[in-house]
Design a protein around this nucleic acid. Structure first.
Lengths: 227, 227
DNA sequence: GCCGCAAGGACTTGCGAAGATCCTGCTTGA
DNA sequence: TCAAGCAGGATCTTCGCAAGTCCTTGCGGC
């Protein structure tokens, strides 16, 4: 028997494979907001028929990454400055609440996970090139893992899943805005401070720092988006 | 021109019509958790082909109401006691945060909307029959509207949408558990107290009452579910 | 010159059939 | 008796085509 360790790791259907690829193309900004998603073109470039394509688009629409226009197909969801404001506020509120609960409920294992995630993150460079910004996928992954680790002990899986989704949406905004760098900002220090407050069980401080962390990024992205 | 007031109110596609019907059948418990959703049977009973059916199921899966089993179709998502715990905590945290923000940001119009929603709700009977419980759809609608009105001023549309989704999921649990009544409980008074605290701008009190409100329902549903 | 209307084209939508996959129950062999 | 292997059947998945819808373009009338 081939070692299928996870029961979920079945060989995926064409529809889900296409869904994943499309999702990544939208999140990375390769398919810009508002772009019409023509079934015929997509089917050709992804090497699939219309049926799996439609299925993938339906899922994307349900996730809010695509917009469905009855009898007129789909298009990539908008990423307007107006939406960014609500997104940031949603993140601050949802993650803030989850973080407070995590701090209240977290055990030793959670503390260790947070410590570890922070350590792994700050070990990596944000950019692959020290002079010009070049996205470091490894850092991106650890960044997501760190923010997720903070919430992991809140005991509310749906809320965590929601925060994951918001995090992805935020990544899309960053990609679309082509925000390359965060001048005059020590992101590593911000992460360290958040982790420290969480481990010190200072919920108010941790939540405040986290909200500021998101707000600061938002302001920069918003400036890029507006210009 | 026919008065299509809302640009969204186009005549829906078969796929979306089926999606809405399926969704309602799952939320109302007519399709119980875990039930296999056979494409052929569904297509027949909903009067559609396989393609629109698949599309609807994909969306339902993305919303978490159905579970996708690669190469084995779909089934209605589970509604286990374990999930209820996380659901209640998610609601308390997410709605609590949104409510606090609403209280901080809400203007006079928000106050009036809350007042009105509470008034409309407590005007209606929970049950159509005073002796036996018989769900009152009108009350259900006003109940949802009331809880939504509380959050409306938080300025975080994604968070509000998330709370809507959790509210639906909670309705499903209630339907599945066939919880008929809430003995020894004055739900109307609970709503009144929450509204009063919100209008008095007492965020701590309002959030606490709201959490208690959900927890209490959860305990009853859990008992029904376990027995 | 501008508005309304109709024909044409492009696209989406939905269906039926073919291909692929999985599950069930039986048979074989130890 | 039990485990492994092998059909057979059921189901899901995908493709190609026909039908329907919407948008655009060009024409005629005001």
């Amino acid at each position: 028997m081939p070692p299928t360790l996870l029961p979920e790791a079945r060989d995926p259907t064409l529809a889900t494979a296409v869904h994943l690829r499309l999702r990544e193309d939208i999140l990375s900004g390769r398919l810009p907001p508002g772009r019409k998603l023509k079934l015929r073109d997509l089917a050709e470039s992804y090497g699939a028929g219309a049926s799996p394509m439609r299925e993938a688009l339906s899922q994307l629409a349900a996730e809010g990454l695509a917009e469905r226009l009855e009898h007129r197909g789909f298009r990539v969801a908008a990423a307007a400055p107006k939406g960014l404001d609500g997104l940031i506020r949603s993140r601050s509120l949802a993650e803030g609440a989850a973080l407070r609960e995590s701090i209240a409920r977290g055990d030793a294992a959670w503390e260790e996970a947070v410590l570890l995630a922070e350590h792994r993150l700050n070990r990596l460079a944000v950019s692959l090139d020290p002079h010009r910004y070049a996205a470091n996928p490894e850092w991106e992954a650890c960044h997501g893992a760190f923010h997720k680790a903070l919430l992991e002990a809140c005991g509310a899986p749906p809320l965590i899943a929601f925060c994951d989704r918001l995090r992805e949406e935020a990544r899309r905004y960053r990609s679309v805005a082509k925000t390359l760098a965060y001048p005059g900002r020590d992101v590593a220090a911000e992460h360290k401070a958040i982790a420290a407050a969480a481990l010190a069980r200072d919920a108010d401080q941790a939540a405040t720092l986290l909200a500021g962390h998101y707000e600061r990024t938002g302001t920069i992205v918003l400036a890029d988006l507006g210009g």
